[in-house]
C-alpha cells in the first residue's frame, strides 16, 4: 500500500487546518480521552438542542490521523441527531474494521457517498497500530453523549 493512500490530501488538509477547534461557551456535554500508547490527547465539548448536536469543539494534540479524524468528525456530526450520530459511528467503526458487519460503512463503487471525507481514513485499516489514533475522537464523543443519556 502506498503511503499516498494513507496520507491523502484531505487528511493532511484537516490535520493542518483542523475544523471546530477550541471550547464552547456553554457545553451540555464533554469528555476527554487519551491514547496512552502514543500520547494522543483529546477533549470534546458538545452543545445539544432538541436532541441535535448544535455545536461541537475539540482541543487535542496528536498525529495527523487522530487530528484529521477528529476534525472530519466534528463536521460530520454537527446538526445531526443523536440517533443519526450513532448510525454514523457504527458505519465508521465497520469501515475501520473495529466492528464486524455486512454494512461496510462505505460503498467502494461510490466513494464519499456514505461517510463523505471520512472515507479518506479507510487507508488506516492497513496500519493496525494506527486505527486507535483514528478512533480516539469517536470514542471520546460517544462518551460525552453517554453523559447526556
Amino acid at each position: 500500500m502506498a503511503l499516498e493512500d494513507l496520507y491523502r490530501e484531505v487528511i493532511l488538509d484537516h490535520y493542518r487546518n483542523p475544523r471546530n477547534r477550541g471550547r464552547l461557551e456553554r457545553p451540555d456535554a464533554s469528555a476527554s480521552g487519551v491514547n496512552p500508547l502514543c500520547g494522543d490527547e483529546l477533549a470534546i465539548e458538545l452543545a445539544l438542542r432538541d436532541g441535535v448536536v448544535s455545536d461541537v469543539a475539540i482541543e487535542s494534540q496528536g498525529c495527523s490521523i487522530s487530528q484529521s479524524s477528529a476534525s472530519m468528525m466534528t463536521e460530520a456530526i454537527k446538526g445531526k441527531s443523536i440517533e443519526e450520530i450513532k448510525a454514523l459511528v457504527s458505519k465508521f467503526r465497520k469501515m475501520m474494521s473495529l466492528d464486524e458487519g455486512e454494512d461496510a460503512g462505505f460503498d467502494p463503487e461510490r466513494p464519499g457517498a456514505v461517510l463523505g471525507d471520512i472515507e479518506a481514513l479507510q487507508g488506516v485499516r492497513q496500519y493496525p497500530v494506527r486505527i486507535k489514533c483514528a478512533a480516539l475522537a469517536w470514542n471520546t464523543m460517544l462518551e460525552a453523549l453517554q453523559e447526556t443519556a
Binding site: L3, Y7, C38, G39, G62, C63, S64, I65, R130, C133
Partner: peptide
C-alpha cells in the same frame, strides 16, 4: 509539522524501524 507517529509510519514503509512516542 509532522507528528512523530506519522514519521514512524512513513519510516516503517521505507523499511526503517524507529520508536515514536
Amino acid at each position: 509539522g509532522i507528528h512523530a507517529h506519522d514519521v514512524a509510519t512513513i519510516l516503517d514503509e521505507e523499511g526503517v524501524a524507529v520508536r515514536a512516542g
